[in-house]
Simulated assay, not measured.
Amino acid sequence: MDDTVRIRRLTPADAAAFQALRLAGLQREPSAFGSSFEEECNETLDAVAQRLAPSPDNAVFGAFDAAGALLGVVGLGRERMLKLRHKGILWGMVVTPEARRRGLGRALMQAAITAAREVPGLLQLNLCVNAQNTAALQLYQSLGFVAFGREPAAMLVDGVLHEEVLMALRW
């Protein structure tokens, strides 16, 4: 990753840029997300800003270029139920096509992992990835994530069933 890209936690002020990037990703690669463009396209900026509000159990990290354009994001959440609160969830990883192959995905993941390790009581991160997304699978494996299962027919997108790989990172 070049020195002109900055990774930081998003704030409610980033809602418009986050929503635009996310909607573009949902349209471009619908099989990469559990959510859909149709579900999120009418979400208000206030609702998006609330998702980005500071919280000890949730964060969204963004990669910004020197001009301040948002190039990629990844979300970090925590399970809410008492017996599951030792687990975090990574969600919504997306990098613009023109910014790929520059190390942004790795930098975003490292920021999320670092933040997760600082959360008291968090011992593990989980994620799901489309089984056909070999680039993402390789990235996650290189960061220490281990596959612990596969969900056949995890998503139905435009009449096509997609399998997901379930992965975890423990510390």
Rank of each mutant, 00 (worst) to 15 (best):
D46T: 14
V60Y: 02
E29P: 00
F33C: 11
F61Y: 15
F61W: 12
S55A: 14
N58T: 13
A47V: 05
E40T: 03
E39G: 00
F61D: 12
Q50I: 04
D46C: 05
F37A: 04
A32F: 09
E38D: 15
G34E: 02
E38C: 06
R51S: 14
E40F: 06
A32P: 00
N42E: 14
E38N: 10
V60R: 13
S35F: 01
E29K: 12
P30M: 04
E43Y: 05
A49S: 14
L45W: 03
D46P: 04
P54I: 00
S35Q: 02
A47I: 03
A53N: 12
E40N: 08
P54V: 01
S31E: 15
A47G: 06
D57K: 11
F33V: 13
S31D: 15
P30W: 01
R51I: 03
E40C: 03
A53V: 08
P54K: 00
S36C: 07
V60D: 12
A59L: 05
F61N: 13
L45E: 10
G34T: 08
E29S: 13
E40L: 12
F61H: 12
A32M: 09
P54A: 00
D46M: 06
E43H: 09
F33M: 14
E29F: 11
L45M: 11
A59I: 03
A47L: 08
A59D: 11
D46E: 15
F33G: 11
N42S: 14
N58M: 07
R51E: 12
A32G: 04
S55H: 10
E39R: 10
F33H: 05
S36F: 03
R51Q: 13
P56Y: 02
E29W: 09
P54M: 02
V60E: 11
A53E: 15
